[in-house]
Design a protein around this nucleic acid. Structure first.
Lengths: 110, 110
DNA sequence: TTATTATATCGTAATATTGCAATGTAATAA
DNA sequence: TTATTACATTGCAATATTACGATATAATAA
């Protein structure tokens, strides 16, 4: 029904799904890549070069902030965004925990 | 409008978002973890131990199959599922490309 | 004070996702 | 042949997401 039955799953499973959701839109990937490339504080208006309306970008930025992946700092009239180093490492390890949970035995697949 | 403007983004960005979407639901995380843990072919009905209806599980399995993350093989009357080794490595590298795109300079964040 | 500038939030329309009952299908069993 | 068993698919209701115009807010400029 469009509603996820979160109570059926472990906190870890819900967490991972929640983080993955942050990456599950090309605009948010683009924003993240932009911040990675600059590896610095990026003025918000630069992000609007994506071709989406200002309100839409702002909404995507909020979602990224909610997962903790990025941090926004008030810089006078404008905003500065950057990757959150601590959270980034955390998320990276969280994902690698999944990815490294598989050893390619090459013959274990039917 | 619930519709993603894919044409605004690169193929890489759309790809990554598409893969992330596969991980963006706790039931699909649970299925993946189950296959990882077994590291073998798992009979489909085991997966229904998740507490969701058979139709719902089947739908999640289809999504995982569509991203290529898992493979299903007909085993008489039942089905066998497993992680797709080649695709798994591919996806892992795809994600690590993003994760490793960040060097923690620790002081580059405002 | 009144602009202006940058961004956030609200409201809403369009589309997507989630979940499941009911039904379809395909292989085997009786 | 008619069950039965194991999934897949269909159809639909409920909720979520995406997008954006309009508007609010908050800081600075004039």
């Amino acid at each position: 029904m469009g509603i996820t039955k979160s109570d059926l799953f472990t906190a870890e499973q819900n967490d991972l799904a929640y983080i993955a959701k942050a990456f599950a839109h090309p605009a948010r990937i683009a924003i993240i890549q932009h911040l990675l490339k600059a590896n610095a504080c990026i003025n918000g208006h630069l992000v609007s070069e994506l071709g989406l309306a200002q309100a839409t970008i702002s909404q995507h930025l909020r979602e990224l902030k909610e997962t903790g992946l990025i941090i926004g700092t008030i810089e006078g009239v404008s905003m500065s965004y950057c990757i959150n180093p601590v959270r980034w490492t955390e998320v990276k390890q969280h994902f690698n925990g999944i990815f490294d949970g598989y050893q390619d035995l090459s013959n274990n697949c039917c």
